[in-house]
């Protein structure tokens, strides 16, 4: 199955694209996708602990199953703080 991956902020800069397609076996999870992304873009491994994932625009745990055509957003920590 084919998953459309969208990347933002620091993750997008590391990968060099805002959008990539990843092929996975049927039954794969968000965690499997993460491994796929890291093997294709090893530069992202350094952010592994802080990344969260959104499946079809809702945050999802790594155990969540994926389906063909899903859109997965790779979300570095959201912009924030006390300065605005």
């Amino acid at each position: 199955m084919r998953i459309q991956v969208r990347l933002f902020a620091a993750a997008r800069e590391i990968v060099g694209h805002g959008e990539v397609a990843i092929e996975l076996k049927e039954g794969s999870t968000v965690g499997d996708l993460m491994e796929g992304i890291f093997s294709r873009f090893p530069g992202l491994k350094g952010m592994a602990g802080s990344l969260v994932f959104a499946v079809n625009r809702e945050l999802a745990e790594r155990s969540v199953g994926l389906r063909d055509g899903d859109e997965v957003g790779v979300i570095p920590p959201v912009s924030g703080g006390t300065d605005v």
Binding site: A9, I75, V78, G80
Partner: peptide
């Protein structure tokens, strides 16, 4: 907004 909305700043 700062907690849950996916907007980043460089």
């Amino acid at each position: 907004l700062k907690q849950i909305v996916p907007i980043w700043k460089k």
